[in-house]
């Protein structure tokens, strides 16, 4: 392991993006979707998540640390590539570029989002509930910032899931990779729908 550190870091980056960060993202979007059932339902579900045992430990080891590594190493990966999709406009090459662009957008979005919610809660004791999100999203600028952030995050996850399967050698043949493309498009569509629906439910 010592001599192929780069291999280890790259594989770790790929793994953490899906497990646990990707799984957390799906869970988060599902919980948020309860906002479409009304403020009371959302508050009840959010309260259930808040009262999970060992919450701080879960947050640190399942969310913050993996996310931090994925983000920092991801920025390094993004800036060591030299995108050329205008010259080679193949589908996968565009996905390659979008993966890096959405990675950066997602990082900015997530930093702001965590600051505004979880850190505000930790530092100022801001209560996290339906009203907090409704207040934030009542500004049209923030609403569209969140829309772009959610779409970009879900894209990065869905397309990252595709490359996860290739990176770990699960989908080897071109055919299996094409089928996986359709599956990940499905993942993108479902979670984008859920995310945007929640935003609309909070804001309007």
């Amino acid at each position: 392991m010592a001599e192929n550190r780069e291999f280890f870091y790259r594989r770790l980056h790929s793994l953490l993006g899906v497990i646990p960060v990707g799984i957390f993202l799906m869970q988060h979007l599902v919980v948020n979707y309860f906002s479409t059932y009304g403020p009371d339902t959302f508050n009840a579900v959010a309260h259930f998540m808040e009262s999970l045992p060992l919450r701080i430990g879960l947050e640190i080891f399942i969310i913050f640390l993996p996310l931090l590594f994925h983000a920092i190493y991801g920025v390094y990966i993004a800036f060591t590539s030299s995108p050329n999709s205008f010259k080679f406009g193949y589908f996968r090459n565009w996905m390659f570029v979008f993966q890096r662009i959405t990675g950066i957008i997602t990082l900015i979005f997530v930093v702001w989002h965590v600051w505004e919610t979880r850190l505000a809660n930790a530092i100022y004791g801001t209560e996290i509930n339906f009203d907090l999100m409704a207040t934030i999203l009542s500004s049209p600028f923030m609403f569209w910032f969140y829309v772009i952030g959610v779409i970009s995050t879900v894209f990065h996850f869905a397309n990252g899931l595709w490359s996860f399967f290739v990176t770990w050698g699960i989908t080897v043949t071109p055919r299996s990779q094409v089928i996986l493309t359709y599956i990940t498009i499905g993942v993108f569509a479902i979670f984008t729908y859920m995310g945007i629906s929640s935003l609309i439910a909070f804001a309007f």
Binding site: E6, F7, F88, Y90, R92, M95, F96, S163, P174, Q177
Partner: peptide, 30 residues
């Protein structure tokens, strides 16, 4: 090495000999 592949899959598109480069890479990944 291998881990630097970013799956843009341009290689297999441009190879003049039609070598299944991305299949080779994925197989090595496995």
């Amino acid at each position: 090495g291998l881990q630097n592949c970013g799956n843009s899959q341009n290689c297999v598109q441009v190879c003049p000999k039609g070598i299944p480069l991305t299949t080779s890479i994925a197989a090595l990944n496995r």
